[in-house]
């Protein structure tokens, strides 16, 4: 089949799943663009950074990096730490992204929190190409973010809108996706561990520092439980 024949139904199937992201990313993207504008950067910066980095929280951090002293190694290290969670997304998506051809490069490039959680949990409707579905989920998310950042950077502080709190739609989305995943599984050990250990680390290390300890702790405990959890994992597949 040609791209057109597979592409359009996949785009049509993917769009409804990205509606919450449309709201969240447009809002956050605009906020980011305004922040860039207020920090003295041309709209070109906001648009290009949204396009090439495509990792929301890191882009806000990047503004402070650009305003500080030139420190490329520090910038790289900080990015690796802030975005370390992507490693978990990659390991989780090794199988799902298999056999998607050249699209795989873009799928990995655009593996943000939202693309991961939608592409991991959504059951692609019958007759829709899985690879193209995931491609369009990623592409739509990416577009919302770039469009938002460009609008924000362009109009800057001229935009008077009181939409504060709209970004909560992202939190709500992750809560809903967590519940959906919970309902699908027979065993909840891993979900409880992820939630509980991260909360524990948040309390112990605080919001700026807790992600790396959380990831290490989750890895350790899951490794220790491999004997028990590995078995149930297999029986689910059969």
């Amino acid at each position: 089949m040609t791209t057109d024949q597979k592409g359009l139904p996949a785009l049509w199937a993917a769009f409804p799943h990205t509606i919450p992201i449309l709201a969240g990313f447009l809002f956050l993207g605009i906020a980011y663009g305004i922040y860039m504008d207020a920090s003295g950067f041309d709209v070109v910066y906001a648009a290009l950074m949204a396009l090439t980095i495509f990792a929301g929280s890191m882009e806000f951090v990047a503004v402070t990096l650009l305003l500080g002293a030139f420190d490329p190694v520090g910038a790289l290290m900080l990015t690796l730490m802030v975005n370390a969670r992507h490693l978990f997304y990659g390991i989780s998506m090794l199988d799902k992204y298999r056999g998607t051809g050249l699209k795989k490069i873009y799928l990995i490039f655009g593996l943000c929190d939202e693309s991961f959680s939608i592409n991991y949990t959504t059951e692609v409707p019958k007759g829709v190409d899985k690879g193209w579905f995931m491609f369009f989920v990623t592409l739509l998310n990416h577009s919302y973010w770039v469009i938002g950042a460009t609008i924000g950077g362009f109009f800057g502080t001229f935009l008077k809108f009181d939409m504060e709190g709209l970004d909560f739609v992202m939190t709500a989305l992750f809560v809903v996706i967590f519940i959906e995943q919970w309902m699908k599984e027979d065993e909840h050990h891993s979900a409880v561990l992820g939630l509980g250990l991260s909360l524990l680390c948040l309390v112990m290390f605080g919001g700026d520092q807790f992600m790396i300890p959380s990831m290490l702790l989750i890895l350790c405990i899951l490794t220790l439980l491999k004997k028990q959890l590995g078995k149930t994992g297999e029986s689910v597949c059969q």
């Binding site: 969670r85 989780s92 967590f178 891993s190 979900a191 992820g194 899951l222």
Partner: peptide, 11 residues
Amino acid sequence: VLPAATLGMLV
């Protein structure tokens, strides 16, 4: 096993 834990971490 990581995906379920990761979704919890994301919340």
